[in-house]
């Protein structure tokens, strides 16, 4: 019981990060490996704003999200946009280059000591024999709410619909007069904002360190794979599923093979359903 609830809480954060990645993937068409760095930048900035500038946590979180959006937009226009017609492994390699530089700079600024933003929600409550810290509940609630809002945004606004069109078929979308450059900006801004929210809220509950970026990206990618590329809402279920599998694997195989079990589960899902659990469309080549 305890493990399941732990898994759900952790899973919603994975989902929030993955939702941002889905949006960005829709326009760039390659995994944005530096997405986890957005999470890291936001977590570190939130912590810095709260401990050094003595801002209240909510303002600190705003600083974190702003930093994350700025970082995402910078990468979008300094790196990805000029490369939009390059082969996809060039974009993939460039995102890895961005990871190397970002991480090195972050360690130079903040060292690699993990830190937690003080001033988060304290206390806990019990469900059956499970003890759930309130902070986890807050984390899960905020994540789910933000994912919900984003899903609505994508399906109800013109920008959202045109982004979906781009994700479905970029060339046709462009021919139909969809503003490609603007959509890139929106996708990176909103996607990085989601990563930013995840990073700042996460930093009030769990330790964040300057080296966590790639791990976070991997988890988000696993979520996307489980959920199937394309839908922001499905990502929530993918995230919860990953969280639960991770928690169960951690219980059945203490330590040791936890990561492997998650990967193995993902591989089994993929072999059985090459387009993800909820994947409707055929994965593009």
């Amino acid at each position: 019981m305890q493990e399941l609830l732990n898994g759900v809480a952790q899973g919603t954060v994975y989902a929030l990060i993955a939702a941002g990645l889905v949006l960005i993937f829709g326009v760039v068409r390659v995994p944005h490996f530096a997405h986890g760095e957005s999470v890291m930048v936001s977590g570190m900035m939130t912590c810095w704003a709260v401990t050094s500038l003595h801002l209240p946590v909510l303002l600190g979180a705003a600083v974190g999200v702003a930093a994350s959006v700025g970082y995402g937009l910078f990468l979008c226009f300094a790196v990805y946009w000029p490369m939009r017609n390059h082969p996809e492994w060039n974009l993939l390699a460039s995102s890895l280059g961005a990871v190397v530089i970002t991480q090195t700079a972050a360690i130079a600024i903040w060292t690699s000591t993990p830190r937690v933003t003080p001033g988060g929600v304290s206390g806990s409550f019990e469900i059956g024999d499970a003890i759930i810290p309130w902070s986890w509940a807050v984390l899960a609630a905020i994540s789910a709410a933000v994912i919900g809002a984003t899903a609505l945004l994508v399906s109800r606004t013109t920008a959202g619909v045109s982004m979906k069109a781009m994700a479905a078929d970029a060339e046709t979308a462009q021919l139909m007069g969809i503003p490609v450059r603007k959509n890139w900006a929106i996708a990176f801004a909103v996607g990085s904002a989601l990563a930013g929210v995840a990073g700042s809220v996460y930093s009030t509950v769990f330790p964040v360190s300057t080296t966590l970026g790639l791990d976070v990206t991997f988890s988000a990618l696993v979520v996307i794979i489980l959920a199937g590329i394309g839908s922001v809402a499905h990502v929530l279920w993918g995230g919860v599923l990953l969280g639960v599998v991770e928690a169960v694997a951690g219980t059945v195989f203490p330590g040791g093979y936890q990561d492997s079990m998650v990967f193995l589960f993902m591989l089994v899902v993929l072999v059985a359903r090459p387009n993800g659990l909820f994947g409707l469309e055929r994965a593009r080549d």
Binding site: L221, F263, L264, L267, L270, P274, D285
Partner: peptide
């Protein structure tokens, strides 16, 4: 043949996962 049922991003991530499993096995 199992992994190659998947394409593009899915294939990239499955091979990444395979690497994770390999390291876990030899390390544990």
């Amino acid at each position: 043949p199992l992994l190659l049922r998947t394409r593009s991003l899915y294939f990239a991530i499955s091979t990444l996962a395979l690497n994770g499993i390999f390291v876990d096995i030899v390390a544990s």
